[in-house]
Design a protein around this nucleic acid. Structure first.
Lengths: 149, 149
DNA sequence: CTCCGTGCAAAAGGTTTGCACTGGT
DNA sequence: ACCAGTGCAAACCTTTTGCACGGAG
């Protein structure tokens, strides 16, 4: 029953690959299976470590490439902001961010109503929450106007 | 009037430095002034590029070190998840994340009430929002239990 | 005067790229 | 058989670290 989630993922991989004419390689299957089967949010390298036993000779490069392909296909998600380089903000109060998926710019959003959403309880989250920030993703008006390639 | 925000930041820098016995160097002032004066969320390198005219001979290293110091002092904020390495998630539906500031692990949080917060309007945000994700920061129960160094 | 902070250079990740080969369709 | 996908090695980019000098407190 927990397994069906993994299988659903693998199924969508099959479907997407078929429709896009992409190769359904062992590497892709194993990588997706591994990622779908864990609840932490591994880095590429952690996935590499986890699968290299089952897939001897697999290379780190492949893991990176496969993960990137999956993200493009919408099968998996990359968390952290795009570009993965640290960004800094002089605004230290609680505020939120609008990340443009096209140009990757980050805009601030101050909205009082968003600054007091009900926090999950310590018990519900199994976590001691001290703060939060909402990241909205979408397209900024500039990018909508100048529709480039 | 817009300038007072920058000055307030510089003022807090002065205060903090005094109270902590830290040096109030030109580099620190210029870097903070630059960051406080822009609304994008620059990377360390973007700040470096911006200030190297006004501060010839400044090194990238210093920018990194100063920014890190500011983050520690609570004067500025680092956005993107800690560690800055990309993490992947097979869960593509809307869900939220609990990031432990101590061990940097990322946990999922599914909470129906958080999945339907009122989105800012397109006009309010000047942005076409397609999705969002809330990142809660704090300490996970494991880290609270095993209080390590 | 004493250290903290800086600059340089080099190291240390993490990620990407070029090229030849292998394997899926 | 063809072309996408893979593996390897090297390149690349961002960030960190060691060490000696210079300026702030």
């Amino acid at each position: 029953m927990m397994k069906s989630k993994i299988e659903a993922k693998l199924q969508s991989l099959v479907t997407v690959c078929r429709s896009q004419g992409l190769a359904l390689t062992v590497q892709r299957r194993v990588i997706l299976e591994n990622l779908a089967g864990r609840t932490d949010h591994p880095t590429a390298d952690q996935i590499y470590s986890a699968i290299k036993d089952r897939l001897p000779g697999v290379s780190r490069t492949t893991v990176y490439r496969v993960l990137e392909a999956f993200v493009d296909l919408g099968i998996i998600q990359r968390i952290s902001n795009p570009g993965a380089t640290a960004r800094f903000d002089a605004e230290t109060g609680r505020h939120h961010h609008l990340v443009c998926l096209r140009c990757q710019k980050v805009h601030d959003l101050n909205s009082p109503s968003l600054n007091s959403i009900p926090l999950p309880s310590r018990d519900e989250a199994a976590f001691d929450i001290t703060d939060y920030s909402i990241t909205f993703t979408g397209t900024c008006l500039d990018c909508q106007a100048g529709v480039s390639s």
